[in-house]
Amino acid sequence: MSNKSRFLGIGSYLPKERLSNDEVAAKWSLDTSDEWIYQRTGIKYRHIISEDEFTSDMAGHAANNALKDAQISAEDVGLIIVATTTADKTFPSCATIVQAKLGCKNAFAFDVQAACSGFLYAVAVADEFIKSGKIKYALVIGVDAMSKIVDWQDRSTCVLFGDGAGAVVIGSDSEHGILSTHLYSDGKVDILCTNGGVGTTSSSGYICMSGQAVFKHGIEKLADVILETLKQNDLQISDIDWLIPHQANVRIIEAVAKKINLPLDKTVITVNQHANTSAASIPLALDSVKSKIKANDLVLLASIGAGMTWASVLLRY
């Protein structure tokens, strides 16, 4: 039996509508500017889902691209996990809707909700199923339509988010693949949430955030989980070939890289083009650089999200 699970295929999808900071300010009559947004976040653009498009549609497009990259069919997939905060419906799960759209008739499917850390949570779960030998191929999708849950009159939050999807096909490998996964949460930290929910207000609510607290917490927890991951694998910072962090704010990414003494040229940054796409953030960034990652490269994925949740996945490419 193989002792590792490996990313065999990677795919992504972004909605057609792409808005610059100035276009967002003009469309929703916001008292802000490109300079104000970019200086504080590093964000220049974000993609916005159309009215007739759903989270499951974005997930399906990204998944199809990952299946093509892995060169396997939908019927080969034994497990589908969708990490999302913005599922099409309260139930059924987004994953089962995607299953039907893809024709993965041999898979079982469910959602994971860990906000921006959801993709890495889902990868960790799929990793265990693959290593156990219970399934041959898993499809893990990170997808969010954050434009559906932002208050477009709140300039402090609405400019930070975008929509998109990323997916990976995971299978077994005897040499390369996932070396370790690390998942954490702290439910006592309530600095990023929505002001509603099905069980409280019968609606999703809008995103509310304590910006400075999230900034500080993000730097601390991302740095901690990166260093702990390396320590548990007897590795040094210099061993990392690629750091792919959650893409929330370029200032957080820069501060983390500085804190752990990692050269910024080893850090993947796509937040300038996509904004914060929540669970889609890391797989979108991964897909953007997959052609540059070489065999045997050490890749570290790290995320921070509402909950608060934080996580890492270390893999040998």
Score class of each variant (00 low, 15 high):
120 L>A: 01
184 Y>M: 14
34 D>W: 00
114 A>M: 14
229 T>M: 11
47 H>A: 12
289 V>S: 02
274 H>F: 11
292 K>T: 00
256 V>D: 12
80 I>E: 01
231 K>W: 01
116 C>W: 05
81 I>M: 09
156 S>E: 15
297 D>A: 10
274 H>S: 07
57 D>G: 08
39 Q>W: 00
170 I>R: 01
129 F>Y: 15
200 T>N: 11
246 H>N: 12
187 G>C: 10
52 D>I: 03
263 P>N: 11
274 H>N: 13
110 F>H: 06
247 Q>M: 08
306 A>D: 06
176 H>Y: 11
14 L>H: 03
214 V>I: 08
105 K>Y: 07
61 H>L: 09
224 D>Q: 10
160 L>D: 02
74 A>Q: 06
204 S>N: 14
145 A>K: 08
31 D>C: 11
307 G>K: 12
242 W>C: 11
189 V>C: 12
298 L>F: 03
147 S>L: 12
165 A>E: 01
158 C>F: 13
49 I>V: 14
236 Q>V: 02
280 A>T: 05
68 K>L: 11
159 V>Y: 04
3 N>E: 07
7 F>T: 07
92 P>A: 10
85 T>A: 15
180 S>Y: 02
92 P>V: 03
137 Y>W: 14
79 L>K: 01
9 G>W: 00
120 L>H: 04
307 G>P: 10
108 F>K: 09
216 K>S: 11
47 H>R: 12
281 S>C: 13
99 Q>D: 08
274 H>Q: 06
317 Y>I: 07
100 A>C: 04
239 D>C: 07
50 S>E: 15
149 I>Y: 11
236 Q>M: 04
270 T>K: 12
24 V>C: 08
86 T>A: 13
147 S>V: 14
219 I>L: 03
113 Q>F: 06
166 G>Y: 04
133 G>K: 05
286 L>K: 03
307 G>C: 10
212 Q>D: 07
316 R>F: 08
228 E>G: 09
140 V>R: 15
157 T>K: 11
317 Y>S: 14
78 G>F: 02
63 A>D: 10
201 T>V: 07
261 N>M: 08
269 I>V: 12
249 N>A: 01
19 L>I: 10
187 G>M: 06
214 V>K: 01
120 L>P: 13
111 D>Q: 13
224 D>M: 13
133 G>C: 01
191 I>C: 12
105 K>A: 11
154 D>T: 14
95 A>L: 06
240 I>K: 01
285 A>E: 05
115 A>F: 14
199 G>H: 14
180 S>G: 14
267 T>P: 05
306 A>N: 03
275 A>W: 13
60 G>P: 01
23 E>Y: 07
177 G>A: 04
27 K>A: 06
239 D>A: 07
77 V>T: 08
61 H>Y: 12
86 T>W: 08
70 A>S: 13
309 T>M: 08
245 P>E: 06
69 D>L: 00
46 R>M: 06
203 S>P: 02
124 A>Y: 12
123 V>D: 12
314 L>E: 00
255 A>I: 03
22 D>W: 00
132 S>M: 06
58 M>F: 09
